[in-house]
Write a protein that binds this DNA or RNA. Structure first.
Lengths: 237, 237
DNA sequence: AAAATATTCGCCAGAAATGGGGAGGAGAAG
DNA sequence: CTTCTCCTCCCCATTTCTGGCGAATATTTT
């Protein structure tokens, strides 16, 4: 397995297009010896990318119904850091149960193991392996392969990001220190009066920073600027 | 190395306090055979945690001077997904060069390899190994150990998160679908008129959602609510 | 079946943010 | 040494947001 994964990662790194990457992702079924493999990148709602071994109908339906909003796998992984077995997710709630029914009907395996991956600029993706092994067997299997799955997820996501934007580094607008300060205060819930006091500057000066940050970020208003700065990692709150 | 790392990860997972974790992190010097090892978690500006093998004086100084804002290692990793060699970072700019000088004087190795790690709720951390090997040797060394470093970073961060908040899962407020819609529109830069039109509801109804979301999130104002929702992963823009 | 949420609608007045002007000094990069 | 970005301060008119009042139906959970 170790050797196969090493070889596999090399083939992933040699991919040059999303089509090739998609092929590599499907190859993973053999490497990991599971029924299904999924790489699902979720950025803006509605701007998702998925490469998987499910039916195309399921993908279409899933996206059309915005299932990412109720899918406990997505929702659970959004709140977690470590890979998680599907059985440990929260399947209570009508929407989740209904979704599960439809998913199983569509051929999605009842066992699954998903790893959340996060990149810069708020990027989020899921890497999943799914199968129909029994509970006991699946548990042993996943325990034995956590690290391999983590590494596969990492390198696939790296490649996806690289293909998408040409390099590892995102070239985003740069904000001056004071602009960062200003946006940070606002993101913490301060209004302009409080923020300017915290920074020991006049309220007018604060506004200049907010203004310039907004224009640098191409934001329509302050809230938009905060949202952009946060997702771009320019401001940490 | 493979075997040693496996054993090491088990010892990391058995740590029950930050002190123990700190011990495990220092042990990594032997596992990886490098001079310095650093785990640096950056959440709010000013709420950082670091566990490392540098001098306590350097840590104090670093935090006091807010060096995370100019440190090219931090800034570079904030924009990257894949581990990066320090030499490939952007050291131009007076602030960065001055910082480098002070760092080297403080005993920080001139070679370094850092991996960015991101968790839920906007959590961000860096795992770094640093040494004084020559360029050529260091390059070969890091190439050979990327995967080990990635895994070490992952499990250390997992443990740090677990110790910090008791479990892998963050238990955050849940928003209703419409509340998410409302905040999403605002985060995209729409004002209330545009947002309510997009959602085909009255402006007043929109306000109700914003209000309830704000109270659920314990936010002081709309901007604060957006910021919280974004960093908590409740809203994806 | 009862309780709790979620979704939807309206009006008004005061508070806050925005847009568009203008201007000087300090420091860094080329 | 010139150019550029950064930091700092000020006014006014208009738009937008916030807070506080109240209320009905539908869906989900307990």
């Amino acid at each position: 397995m170790q050797g196969r994964l090493d070889t596999y990662i090399e083939t992933v790194q040699s991919a040059n297009s999303l089509d090739e990457l998609q092929g590599r992702i499907k190859d993973l079924r053999n490497v990991f010896d599971v029924e299904h493999v999924v790489y699902h990148s979720i950025n803006s709602l509605g701007q998702q990318y998925a490469s998987h071994t499910y039916t195309p109908e399921w993908e279409t339906y899933y996206f059309a119904e915005n299932f990412e909003r109720i899918d406990p796998v997505v929702q659970g992984c959004l709140r977690r850091f470590h890979p998680v077995d599907w059985r440990r997710l929260d399947w209570s709630g009508k929407a989740a149960r209904d979704f599960l029914g439809e998913a199983v009907d569509a051929g999605v395996g009842h066992q699954g193991f998903s790893v959340p991956i996060r990149g810069p600029s708020g990027q989020f993706a899921l890497f999943t392996i799914s199968d129909r092994r029994s509970d006991a067997v699946w548990e042993k299997y996943t325990e034995a392969h956590v690290r391999d799955v983590i590494l596969a997820a990492h390198f696939i996501n790296q490649k996806a990001l690289e293909i998408e934007r040409g390099s590892d580094e995102a070239d985003v607008a740069k904000l001056s220190p004071r602009e960062v300060d200003a946006l940070t205060m606002l993101a913490m819930g301060y209004n302009r009066a409080q923020a300017s006091e915290s920074l020991s500057i006049s309220e007018h000066t604060l506004r200049v920073y907010i203004e310039s940050a907004r224009s640098k970020l191409g934001a329509a208003n302050t809230t938009h600027a905060i949202a952009k700065a946060l997702t771009l990692g320019l401001v940490i709150v």
